[in-house]
Design a binder for these strands. Structure first.
Lengths: 182, 182
DNA sequence: CTCATACGTTTAATATCCTAGACGACAAGC
DNA sequence: GCTTGTCGTCTAGGATATTAAACGTATGAG
């Protein structure tokens, strides 16, 4: 972890769109102190750093746990979405699987007649989704059901499951799942 | 969080079966300083606390994260208020928040001109979503962007954020987030 | 242009931290 | 008893953090 408390504070402050003076006002310290800390010209006492972080607000634990290297992208246009799959089944990854990510968000598209696989899938984690267009037949364990727009599902991924588009038009689903933890 | 850095340090030091002098020797500080810190008669600078913890050894993040089991969920009230929904903003809970659930899946609908709140929201976890209809202005930290159908977002919920429908028609989003139980 | 406001930085004076060293208390060994 | 050792605590003084107020720059309004 970076010992650079100054850069860390500056990063946090600017991320929260605060000026040195505004943060100083909220924290009950002077703007000069914040300037000095951010330049690493002083090493703040825990008490003063606590006051500063209270103005954000953020705990010491969060502050020191922060991963500065991760400058995460927050917005994704259609072109930026990673696309996988073939003609029949495509998955657009909203947030690509990265270490630290706790969610995987997908925009799934099933062509007419398409299915995930012949056999049933089973893996760890949980998943859910909402149908936004078309109709899809979902089998989870012993149960099978056809869902239309606005309808949703949620189940533990270790239950054997399969998706199949039984309609005539393409089916689109927005889904989310927990990352594969092994 | 417990501001009692002194008790925290004493607890850690005794857990590692170190005397004040022995820890001071390893850390390159004086035993008197450790005594004063443990009595909360001074608030150590980050630099000296770092030196002390290096003698254990332990990182600042670990030190401040220690035994925070009593972490209250205080920050989630505003979020829960929004979740009830009114005329302008409605959230359909696809997967209700239950113990054990790892995902919360939402179908959000913002009427024209609707917004989550005046102030920015900030809480733990991560969240992402895909716009399926309309246009929405999303502010995350210092960045603001308008997203349309097919576009997406993903960010750590701790960053201050706000959603606002700046268009004329209703906007719908499928979103997922990690549970606020942390 | 001039004024006003906001930004981050710097400086002199003050408050606080930190060190070096001494203190009393307790225990073990001779 | 007297030593020898280690424990945590305390105090004076030098080192450092922090304040209050000024500085220089940039930007927008009249």
């Amino acid at each position: 972890m970076s010992l650079d408390v100054g850069a860390r504070l500056r990063s946090v402050r600017t991320t929260f769109a605060l000026s040195q003076r505004e943060l100083a006002r909220r924290a009950g310290v002077t703007n000069g102190l914040i300037s000095l800390i951010e330049q690493n010209r002083v090493s703040p006492s825990v008490s003063s750093l606590t006051k500063v972080l209270d103005g954000i607000p953020m705990s010491l634990a969060e502050f020191f746990t922060l991963d500065l290297s991760a400058a995460p992208q927050a917005f994704f246009s259609s072109e930026e979405l990673v696309e996988r799959g073939d003609e029949s089944v495509s998955l657009r990854l909203v947030a690509a699987q990265r270490p630290g990510r706790q969610l995987t968000l997908l925009h799934e598209r099933y062509a007419a007649g398409a299915a995930t696989a012949e056999e049933m899938l089973t893996h760890r984690g949980e998943q859910g989704g909402v149908v936004i267009r078309g109709r899809i037949e979902i089998t989870v364990g012993a149960a099978t059901r056809v869902l239309g727009p606005g309808e949703a599902y949620y189940f533990a991924s270790q239950l054997p499951h399969r998706f199949r588009n039984v309609g005539r038009e393409a089916c689109e689903i927005i889904s989310a799942r927990t990352p594969p933890t092994f």
